[in-house]
Every structure is written in C-alpha cells, then in structure tokens.
C-alpha cells in the first residue's frame, strides 16, 4: 500500500466528473423507480402500488421468474462446484495446466458476448441438442465459471501456505487437507462465487436470448421483448422489482466484503510478493 498519510487531492474537475458520472449512472434508475410508483389520473400524478400488483399477478411474468430462478440456481450451483474444484486443484502449481486454465477463463471473460452466444447456439445445433432451459443452463455455466474461478482464486492466494504444511506435518494427506483446512477457509469465497454467478445468470439477457427454447423465456428476455413495444408503468414496476432484487443482494454482499477481494487487486499482489520473499528465504 502506498502511504496513507500523503495523497494529494485530485483536481476539482476529477471529483466533479466522478459525481456527475455517479448521478448519470443512478438518475435514470431513480426515475424508473419513481415512475413505477406513479399513476396518471386525469392528468394528475398519484402514488400507487397498482403496477407492482399487476406484475405479481401476471402469470406469464411469474413463469418467467420461475425459469430465471431455476436456471440461476442450477447453473450457479454447477459453476460453483466446477470452479471451486478447479481453483483448488491448480493453485500453487506452476504447471502448464494452471496457465491453460487462466487462458481459457480469460477467453470466456473477454470474448464479445455475442460471439459467445452465437457459437453456443451453433454448437447446440450441431449437437442436435434441443433448445430449452437445459441449453440456457449450459451457456450460463460457461460464462459464470470464470467468475467463480476468479473469486475463489483471489481468496486462495491469500491463504497462508504454511497452514497446509502444518496439516501435512500433523499427518494429513492431500485430500484431508482439502477437506479439513482449505475448503472450510474458502467458504466465504465459495459463497461469494455462487451469489455472483447467480446474479450474472439472473441478469443475463443476450446469451439467454440466443439459446433459449420457444416459450421458455427468462425475465430479462421477457422484459426485452416487452420494451421493444415501448415504455409503460407496468414495465417500470417489473424493472424496478428486478433491479431491487439484484441490488439488495449486492448491497448485502458488498457490506459483508465477500466481493471485495474481486475488486482489490492489491491483496493478491501483496501475497505474491510475500511468496517471493519466503522463496528467497529458503
């Protein structure tokens, strides 16, 4: 960490820009939230929950919600299992496998979403897999896997390597160490990875749009199709509900610090420096 004591302030323009962008990011959302609570009665606006009730009583939308939750749960469960297993398998190895995995997860992170979507669609077509929730789940696992890998990895590198040595010294084998030491210590990160991939799945539109089957829309797809028709208070309410769902989960996890590791590159850097030092000591 650079010294906390001395950080000369950025020029006022920079902080102004920061606040303007924040306002621009949040203002439309705020307008949408307010809009969902207003009803136009003979030219005068009144507060109402009417639109929310309409959304809740819309069976179509509730079916889509069920689809979204089902896909989100299954896909994030799968990607959490796959991602955690792989992160645990490869950390502190300098094997070629580690770099291949890094490369693969980089590819899936950075490739244009649209290519990701259409390549999966083509592949499903070639495999003659029927499009439906199962193909949506496969697609969601494919893109959320690298996020789980990232989350779990960033926690793994902060683990003290001597804990493993200590367990080994006390008589534990590889699998026992995994079960009794590493996995329990990774629990917050694994949970964070699960929540993150659930949110990614719950919010994904484009990839789902490509690979879902007829009549099995998820909420974002429903929303997209509806908003092609234009803006309406009911859509405001639907969007607001979805936004608030995601947002509250996020706030909870940001406060608990589960995602912090993702965004603080510093932590992993510090650890690798430390590792270099211990290597030098040997």
């Amino acid at each position: 960490m650079s010294s906390e004591r001395t950080r000369p302030k950025a020029p006022r323009l920079a902080s102004m820009m920061f606040w303007i962008m924040l306002i621009l990011l949040y203002l439309p959302i705020l307008v949408m939230l307010v809009g969902s609570l207003l009803e136009d009665k003979d030219g005068s606006l009144q507060w109402t929950f009417k639109w929310f009730l309409e959304v809740i009583h819309d069976e179509n939308l509730m079916d889509a919600l069920k689809n979204s939750l089902f896909v989100g749960f299954v896909s994030s469960l799968l990607s959490t299992i796959l991602g955690t297993a792989s992160a645990v398998a490869l950390y502190r190895t300098t094997s070629r496998m580690y770099w291949m995995m890094e490369g693969l997860s980089m590819i899936s992170l950075i490739f244009p979403e649209i290519v990701f979507a259409l390549s999966l669609l083509s592949w499903f077509f070639v495999l003659k897999l029927e499009l439906g929730l199962q193909t949506v789940i496969i697609a969601h696992v494919s893109f959320s896997l690298s996020y789980v890998l990232m989350t779990v990895n960033s926690r793994l590198v902060t683990l003290d390597p001597s804990l493993e040595d200590a367990a080994r010294d006390l008589g534990a084998g590889e699998w026992t160490i995994l079960k009794t030491i590493i996995l329990p210590l990774l629990r917050p990160a694994i949970l964070g990875g699960f929540i993150l991939s659930f949110l990614l799945s719950f919010d994904d539109f484009l990839i789902t749009y490509f690979v879902n089957g007829v009549g099995q829309d998820t909420l974002p797809v429903k929303l997209y199709t509806a908003m092609k028709m234009g803006v309406s208070p009911k859509l405001n309410a639907l969007s607001s509900l979805m936004f608030l769902m995601t947002f509250s989960v996020l706030i909870f996890f940001f406060r608990s610090g589960s995602f912090r590791i993702l965004f603080e590159e510093g932590s992993s850097k510090v650890r690798s420096d430390e590792r270099e030092q211990t290597n030098n000591l040997l």
Binding site: L163, A166, A167, D169
Partner: peptide, 11 residues
C-alpha cells in the same frame, strides 16, 4: 512435528 514461524494455527 514442526512449529512454524507464524504459528500457522488453523484459523
């Protein structure tokens, strides 16, 4: 058995 530099107690 070994005693480690940073104790390495399982947290």
């Amino acid at each position: 058995n070994m005693v480690f530099q940073k104790y390495s107690l399982f947290p």
